[in-house]
């Protein structure tokens, strides 16, 4: 009992100390930045480490910060918004020069971003957007445009079947239902192919961005639809799973059924180089160098575009063979 009371008291003291420390720092608004050695300090809050894509993203940011001579303070939010808000608040107290983060969810950021604005710390969003009326809360948003990715996939398909009149039966493996990449990659793709009635999406179902579901759904598609000409998968992994299903059905992926995917992770690029995929639209996690450029610009007070696209490309089979040896993820 006594022990309990003592530990409670101790906790109270610690809490009080933390609070007063927080207030103390918070009161010196507008002071010089935390580190005055001329080095820019960047506070970055990452979503988590949920996929190979994300870990490549983290690595890119850490490496390019080091090579750009920027002092990086990095925090992993483990998929939780409250962790991210905590991290951003601590960056504000530490008076970093620039804050960057990949928001876990789209809403609920206004309060903490107001605090950053009040403390005169510019904010850059990476990879994912926030849904806020007040566009002055952040300087810029750098990341991929999923609609453009879908459009690129559609454009390739239109070109591939140029001059042909026979109907083209397309099946689509969608990403996780309701996620931004799934919605946007679908709408971008459909927008590009709808002009020509020969393109028909005969089946479309979610494969939840995983190989296992991609395979399972493709198996069912193959049974239900005797004639499939094209598969469009919203990421490489679902495409890779579907390739297994196509092979098990005695067909040649890439030849009997043309395959378009998005992402360009290493396994996908390998399949592309092997001729099992026909076209991949890149969704690059390597936005570190671009981010560091932006950090320097906003620190220097230069105006930047409110929306910046990640430098991304597309790969054909020949390009994949060339690019594969240098692939980082």
């Amino acid at each position: 009992m006594i022990l309990h009371r003592m530990s409670a008291a101790a906790a109270g003291v610690v809490l009080l100390a933390a609070m007063t420390a927080g207030c103390g720092n918070g009161n010196e608004v507008g002071g010089a930045s935390g580190t005055d050695d001329g080095k820019i300090t960047l506070g970055f809050s990452q979503v988590g480490a949920e996929s190979g894509w994300r870990t490549a993203n983290t690595k890119s940011i850490q490496e390019s910060a080091a090579s750009a001579g920027i002092d990086l303070k990095f925090a992993d939010a483990q998929q939780k918004q409250e962790n991210q808000i905590k991290a951003i608040r601590s960056y504000i107290t530490q008076k970093v020069d620039v804050i960057a983060f990949s928001p876990v969810v789209e809403t609920g950021w206004d309060a903490v971003l107001q605090e950053a604005k009040a403390a005169n710390i510019p904010v850059i969003l990476t990879d994912r957007a926030v849904d806020s009326q007040d566009k002055t809360l952040y300087k810029t948003f750098i990341g991929s445009d999923f609609v453009v990715e879908g459009q690129k996939a559609g454009e390739w398909l239109v070109k591939e079947y140029e001059g042909k009149t026979a109907p083209v039966n397309i099946v689509q493996l969608e990403g996780t239902t309701g996620s931004a990449p799934a919605n946007d990659r679908k709408s971008g793709f459909e927008e590009k192919i709808k002009a020509d009635p020969k393109f028909k999406i005969i089946a479309s179902q979610t494969g939840k961005f995983t190989r296992a579901d991609g395979k399972e759904v493709m198996e069912a598609f193959l049974k239900a639809n005797p004639k499939i000409d094209v598969l469009y998968a919203h990421n490489d992994d679902m495409g890779l799973g579907a390739i297994e299903a196509i092979e098990a059905a005695g067909k040649k992926p890439g030849v009997d059924i043309k395959i378009i995917t998005v992402d360009a992770v290493k396994d996908g690029m390998q399949a592309l180089a092997d001729g099992k995929i026909n076209f991949i639209v890149e969704c690059s996690p390597l936005l570190g160098p671009q981010l560091m450029e932006l950090v320097k610009k906003v620190k220097a007070g230069e105006t930047v575009e409110p929306r910046i696209l990640t430098e991304e490309t597309t790969f054909t089979q020949a390009q994949a063979k060339e690019a594969l040896p240098n692939r980082k993820y």
Partner: peptide
């Protein structure tokens, strides 16, 4: 049930 959903083409949003 899963295979039925995939073969009959129930839209992803309603599965």
């Amino acid at each position: 049930l899963d295979t039925t959903i995939y073969t009959t083409g129930v839209p992803a949003q309603t599965t």
